[in-house]
Amino acid sequence: MSIWEYANPKKFIATTTPVLPWVMWAAAVTLVVGLVWGFFFTPDDYRQGSTVKIFYLHVPAAMMAINIWVMMLVTSLIWLIRRHHVSALAAKAAGPIGIVMTLIALFTGAVWGQPIWGTWWVWDPRLTSFLILFLFYLGYMALWTAIEDDDTAADLTSVLCIVGSVFAVLSRYAVNFWNQGLHQGASLSLDAEENVADVFWYPALVCIAGFILLFVALVILRTHTEIRLRRARALETRMRA
């Protein structure tokens, strides 16, 4: 049995429906544990005080904002190459989640930056990159809504997603070139211990896991919605024909 069998819309719904509540609960529990742990059971940072705790929302949201775009890129490629409807609809479903994650990252970044840098917004490379990512999400979603025919929309948004990804990476480097910025380096990396002490790091990992689970739950739910909408339209056209 090939993995592609799950790309059939009916099969996909049948397989994921029983899993969905579990993922939702797992996301809820992980998020509550991670956030409560992060907010109440970690010491304040010696320089940044309790402000640093917004980190538990900011970093996972920022990571997801990028990862969701990457996931959209992968599903777009799968649609273009293998023509599996679920893949295209999953990309469509992920768009709004991605843009909300980008907004959360931008908003929490502003709230975090205000006391630390003394301003809500700076044209720092990292912040600017997220603003640009926001614009890319906006264009992607706008193209989906503008085109009536579902398969045409899927094809064109996929092409846009691929080209957009290249330009998003280019923009990232261009923005770095343009302004060397205030933002600290990436908070989590393989040498994370240098940046963030373990006490902060463990709850952060739990929060990241929570955001990933939340995304998986939402994307499955929204893909179900898109599949059912498409099915409703298909039945309607068949009835009218």
Binding site: I132, L143, A146, G164, F167, L170, S171, Y173, W178
Partner: peptide, 30 residues
């Protein structure tokens, strides 16, 4: 090419194209 079939595609076209212009603008003005 993306918006060719659309009525009132002009505004959408700007929304799609402007973010793609960012690297060229940055390097040019810089």
């Amino acid at each position: 090419a993306l918006t060719v079939g659309l009525r009132r595609g002009g505004l959408l076209l700007s929304l799609l194209v402007l973010p793609l212009y960012i690297p060229t603008l940055i390097f040019g003005a810089e």
